[in-house]
Structures are given as C-alpha cells and as structure tokens.
Design a protein around this nucleic acid. Structure first.
Lengths: 218, 218
DNA sequence: TCCAGAGTTTTTATCGACAAAAGTAAAAAC
DNA sequence: GTTTTTACTTTTGTCGATAAAAACTCTGGA
C-alpha cells in the first residue's frame, strides 16, 4: 500500500557521508571538497552541501565560512572530554531508565545481552550489537531528547573506537563487564549500575587514549 | 588587522531563521516553503536549503522527505519532556561547575546576577541577560559538549516562553529565586543548588503549561 | 636565501533553470 | 452521490554555470 520511502539524494548523501566519517574511512581533519564528495556519492553540489551543513550541526564536520568544510578533528583532549560527558549523562539516563523500566524493558536488556554474547568480538555485526545493548539499557528513560543526546555521544565514541581499531584489544573481559552492569540494572540498583557503566567507559577510554597516542606518534 | 568575519549568506540565513523560530515570529508547525523564505531573507534557494538542513539537525525544523520542511511543532507533552531533561542535565552541569569553579567563575556569577537585577523584567534586553545568568552558573563545567547541549535545551525553552508571552507573568519573585540559587552555588552547596535550579525551572514550567493550554483552547 | 607581489589556478558560494513529485480541482464513471 | 480519472498548479529537489574569494606559483628584486 504505502509507496516505498523515497528518500531524497540529500538524505542519502548525509547518511553515507556520516557513516564514512564514523567508520574512519575519512580521516579526522581531512578537507571536504564539495566537488570531490559530489563525484564520490554521485550527486550535485546542492545535496552534498546540505549534507555537510547538517553534519556540521551534528558536530561531525567543521564549517569554516568562506573556506569550506573539514572533517571534525580528533584529539585525546576531545576524547577525554567526550568520555567525561558521556559518563555523567548516561548515569542519569540509566538511573531514570531503571526507575521507569517495566517488564518489556527488562526483556529487552536480557535479549540484547544474549545476542551480544553470542557474537564474537571483532565479528562483522559486533559493533551494532554492542550499540544495541547499550541502547537497550537506557531505552526506558522517558526523555527522547536525552536519549538522542546519548546517541550522539555514542556515535562520537564509536568513531574513536574505529580510529584506534588497528591496535589490538587489551586482555579484558568485556562480556563480564556487560554482565554485571545488566545484573545491577535489572535488580534496580541504580547508583551501582551507573557507577559500573561509567567505569566500563573509563576502562575503554584508557585503552583508547593509549592507542591514539601511539597512532599520533607514528 | 584581522579582516572582518565575512560570513556567508547561508550562515546569515541560518541565524536569522533560527531567531525567527525562537521568537515565535514563525509559528510552530508552519510550513516552510523554500521560495517564500528565499524572498524573505533575500537569498537563493541554496543558502535557504542549507539553513533548513542545519536547523533540522538542531531540532528546530522538521524535514519531510519529498514534501519539504516545517517549523518544529510545539506541544505541552514536548514541553514537559524538555523541562524534565533540562532539570536532569543542568543539575549535573551545575554540580560540576561548582566543583571546578574558581574565583573568575564566582565573579562571573555575581556580575551576571547584578546585571539581571538591574534590568526590569519585560525590558528589551531581559531575555538575553536572563540567559547570560544561567550560562554563567554553568560556565565552569569542564565539558563544552555538555554545555552546548544545555544551550540547545535553553533555546528550546526560550521558544516556549516567547510563545506564551502573551499571557501575563504570575505573581512570583523571580529575582529572589535567582538570588538563592546563586547563593547556594557560590557557597559550594552543590546538591542544594541543583535542587533549587530544578525547582526554578519547574515553577516556570507550571505557569507555561497553563499558558499554552489556554492558547490552544483559543 | 628570503621575501613581496602579480598573475594564475582551485575552491567556494550562489544563482536561475528544469524535471519529478505532491497537491488540487474539475470531469467522468459507476 | 460517491468514487475514480484526468488534467493542471504548486512545490520540491537537483543540476550546471558563474562570480567572488582563497590558495598557489612563479618571478624579480634585495
């Protein structure tokens, strides 16, 4: 019945460009020439420009009036700041999610964790499943605005993870960490769950910081 | 020495359109036809479209693929949700601001409050001074990302205030509320200050909710 | 060798035109 | 009298061309 969602070239370009930025296919700080991008994504200047404007509002692209666009730079300082903000905000979101969560939420968390465990790390879909697990944890938080913000932060963090993916993952039992977080959340221990979640992020952050520093040195 | 910042037509349009949206000059839900806006702001379709794309990423404009743009709708539900998120997030930001704030921050708060007191409510610059006061409170929080988020939330709230401005302000001593918040913040009482700030927002929210309901009825 | 400046080449920002889609109104069919 | 069809209008999304601005290059001095 419903005609297939005919999305516009501008939105397509927006999505693709964003993905390339998040995957690290386009390096941080790289110059984004409209003409090149147009060729790459098969579109005219207008849709590309629209996509760039959007992404600059999302913080993934920097706009320099009269001298074009650049991929948002990446630095350890920026990353540290990101992690800090993420811990603070997600602690709140998790607390409220736990407070508001019912049976459906609990089941969502359980199944998301199960799917994540089943897939080996480094596998194709792992990143997506990992994202889904963390989304599920917060999903009962009754504030779309806040959740959207968390989503943005998660994306920025995923970008850093992609950038450092060359370096080997440290000897750490991530699955166990996920398990205790889910456990605490499901038993309603809000402050404990928040603390565990923050620690989870800080762990990864420490590893990433080192990886980034090593990259920069090379 | 530095040449004056030659900002592009797209950014100009972006700023102007945003202001009109925030001031309520353009009604929530109104259709935004590219051609009309182009005429209004004296620009071609491309800059207008860019501005629209940006604003849709900021949540002030809704994009409907293949059928144009609309000013973001306003509803009491959306407003309630906004206030809730704002209380949660600003409590965190204020806490961290207090923790990190030094002498310069304290002075900033004091002077912002002084300026606000001096200006009568309803006066031309009041809204700006009011914004400056709340910004000053949070300004020592060491996370640009978080502050930017608070800023967007504040803007959305200001829009609602503008929409309801027709209705008379209730008999409430706003100055006194500001005073006790500043007092608590400056003496390092983080949790008390956070609670007061949240209460401050909820007060305004109650009034606004009523005002909006009355508007909708009319 | 280093710098200043003129001229050339990219790149950016903007416009106007055009085709495809959505919306609208009137006419035809059941 | 309601629905369907059809023709028409408006609006949206996209392109290619163009002028203005920045970046680059080359040359001729000191």
């Amino acid at each position: 019945m419903a005609p297939p969602p005919p999305d516009t070239l501008a939105t397509q370009t927006h999505r693709r460009l964003r993905q390339d930025l998040l995957d690290g296919v386009i390096a941080p700080g790289a110059k984004l020439k409209v003409h090149d991008l147009a060729a790459r994504y098969g579109a005219g200047p207008s849709p590309v420009r629209e996509a760039l404007a959007s992404l600059s509002s999302e913080g993934l692209v920097e706009r320099l009036d009269q001298r074009g666009f650049r991929a948002a730079p990446a630095s350890v300082e920026d990353f540290d700041e990101l992690v800090r903000a993420r811990c603070w905000v997600e602690e709140v979101a998790l607390r409220e999610s736990i407070a508001a969560g019912g049976a459906a939420w609990e089941e969502g968390v359980v199944v998301a964790r199960f799917r994540l465990e089943r897939a080996a790390r480094g596998e194709a879909g792992w990143e997506a499943l990992h994202g889904a697990f963390h989304t599920a944890l917060l999903s009962a938080c009754p504030s779309p605005t806040l959740l959207a913000f968390c989503e943005t932060l998660r994306e920025r963090a995923a970008r850093y993870r992609a950038l450092a993916s060359a370096v080997a993952y440290p000897g750490r039992d991530v699955a166990a960490e996920h398990a205790v977080i889910a456990q605490a959340a499901l038993t309603g221990q809000a402050v404990a769950a928040g603390a565990l979640l923050a620690e989870h992020y800080r762990q990864t952050a420490g590893w990433l910081r080192e990886a980034l520093a090593r990259l920069r040195a090379a």
